[in-house]
Each structure stands twice: as structure tokens, then as C-alpha cells.
């Protein structure tokens, strides 16, 4: 059996919710049935066959080829299986997913992995704002699983994050880990202004020192903590850059805050000059 492949025929006229193209919903369906599945667009319903040509038959391995940023909610609600996206994915990729793997060979839009509870998302390119956060209005961001962004992430990465791993190899925008409730975010590159803004608990590890930190974070000292050693070691499965970062046993400067709220969060800065 070969992977079930959806090749985009043409750019849709407007945004389309393609969350229906996930393994659990496609399993057991014939290609003819899949062709007729509805995809909700902006004031119109598309049929899968209108937008995609279909190849292969293994619904546990789905490929969306030639993805466009108008394809929203790819893999949203996924509960297992593998989904590979080739191209630029739209917003809300992997929203509320519970398990399975999404691999994106390209960039993704905003709110990648919003509210996800399990599984893994690996983005080879860049991610938009609010990676690993929650939908607007929700009280919690991602609550499990792992998001790995090989490129850069936009502003508010990890906003209201509750649990899980948000790993960014490149840079992150402003307000990284804002309103973080718990969990772990790692940015190997630089972060924008006000990282950890209103962070209540959780861990933000920065590979490079930010220009400045919020005044509501207090310096806690330089510690070689066993829990952080364990945490860094656990990141080695997420690629060579995290592996080399962990194996370098970085000396970490620990800052506690945000004292503007609960104040039990920690920012650990490697090569810190603060």
C-alpha cells in the first residue's frame, strides 16, 4: 500500500477548511467516496475531488502535496497516523490534534498546533504567530505533544501554553511564552521583546541571550539543575541542533518570573550576558 496522496490541482478561490483530510476520517473509504467528501470553504462547499487529485490508498499515511496557505486546519483534530504536507500550509495546522505525526516540508501559518493535546508536528520552515497557543478566546494553549519549528516562529509563540514541548530552532518573535501556564518552550535563536510576559509557570530555555528581559523577572543565579539536564537530554530526539545544544551542557542563567502574576516560571538563558 502506498500513502494516500492529495495533490492540489489549483489554488482555491478562498480559504478552505481541509481538516477532513485526516487519517481517521479517511480510513475505510474508497477513493470514490473520498473524492466526494465535502470541504468547507468561504461561503461555499468544495468537494475533495474538485481541489485535489488523489493517488495511493493507505489512509494511515496521508500526503498533502502542493499545499497552499489557503488550506486551513490541515490535520486539525488528528487522532493518529501520519500526515505529510509539502508546500506552505495555512493557519491552524494540527489544531487540537491528540496523537499522530504531522510533518511539514515548508512553512506554516499562524496558530500551528493551537490547543493540541498530543502528537508531534515538525515544520521544516517557518511558523507564523501564536505557534502552540490556543485559539483566540480560549484559556489554554497547547496541552501536550511536541511542536518543532526548524525555522523561525512569529510573535506570541507558546501563548497560554499549558503543557508539552514547543521547540524552535531559529528565532522567535515578541512576547514568546507570554501568559504561559506550564510546559516547556525552547528557542535556540533570538527572541523578540518581553519574553515570558505574564508567564505563570513553565520553562523557557533560550539558546541566545535576549537584548533585555522584563523587569518583572528576578535573577536566580547560575545553576546546573538535574531536572534541566534530564529535560535537555530528552530533546536530543528532536534533531541535531537540539542534540548538540543538550550535549554541550550549556551553563544556564536562571531568571524567575513573571512576578507580575504567579511568578513561578523560569527562563534559562545559555551564554547569558544578562
Amino acid at each position: 500500500m502506498s500513502a494516500l496522496k492529495f495533490v492540489l490541482r489549483h489554488t482555491p478561490p478562498s480559504a478552505v477548511d481541509v481538516s477532513g483530510l485526516r487519517p481517521a476520517l479517511l480510513a475505510g473509504k474508497s477513493r470514490k467516496e473520498i473524492t466526494k467528501l465535502p470541504l468547507t470553504g468561504w461561503n461555499e462547499i468544495h468537494r475533495v475531488g474538485d481541489l485535489f487529485s488523489i493517488r495511493g490508498d493507505d489512509a494511515q499515511r496521508v500526503v498533502v502535496d502542493g499545499a497552499d496557505e489557503r488550506l486551513l486546519r490541515i490535520g486539525a483534530g488528528m487522532e493518529g497516523g501520519e500526515l505529510t504536507v509539502v508546500g506552505t500550509a495555512g493557519d491552524y495546522l494540527g489544531e487540537s490534534m491528540r496523537s499522530g505525526t504531522i510533518v511539514v516540508r515548508g512553512d506554516v501559518g499562524t496558530f500551528v498546533g493551537a490547543g493540541m493535546r498530543g502528537g508531534r508536528i515538525d515544520v521544516s520552515g517557518n511558523a507564523g504567530a501564536f505557534a502552540g497557543s490556543g485559539r483566540a478566546g480560549t484559556l489554554q494553549g497547547m496541552a501536550g505533544g511536541a511542536i518543532v519549528v526548524r525555522g523561525n516562529a512569529g510573535d506570541r509563540a507558546g501563548d497560554r501554553m499549558r503543557r508539552g514541548l514547543l521547540l524552535i530552532e531559529g528565532n522567535a518573535g515578541d512576547y514568546c511564552a507570554s501568559r504561559m501556564l506550564a510546559g516547556t518552550a525552547v528557542v535556540l535563536g533570538r527572541v523578540g521583546i518581553d519574553a515570558g510576559y505574564l508567564m505563570r509557570r513553565g520553562t523557557l530555555i533560550l539558546g541566545r541571550s535576549p537584548a533585555e528581559l522584563l523587569p518583572t523577572f528576578n535573577h536566580n543565579g547560575w545553576h546546573d539543575l538535574l531536572a534541566i539536564r534530564l529535560l535537555l537530554e530528552s530533546l536530543t530526539v528532536h534533531g541535531k541542533r537540539f542534540q548538540s545544544f543538550a550535549r554541550s551542557r550549556p551553563s544556564l542563567s536562571r531568571w524567575l518570573g513573571d512576578l507580575g502574576c504567579d511568578g513561578k516560571g523560569e527562563i534559562l538563558i545559555a551564554l547569558g550576558r544578562l
Binding site: 503543557r163 506550564a182 539543575l225 534530564l230 530528552s234 523560569e266
Partner: peptide
């Protein structure tokens, strides 16, 4: 109240502040 819970590699650990650092 200063203890920290951390989920690492699918296992939950507790970090309890003690006088030489943390008890994990």
C-alpha cells in the same frame, strides 16, 4: 508550594527546592 512539576519524555517529575538545589 515552590515545587515544580515537569513532564520529561512522557514521565512526570517533581522538582522540590532543597538547600543544595533541587530534589528531583
Amino acid at each position: 508550594g515552590w515545587q515544580i512539576s515537569k513532564l520529561i519524555g512522557g514521565k512526570r517529575y517533581w522538582r522540590i527546592p532543597v538547600m543544595d538545589g533541587e530534589f528531583v
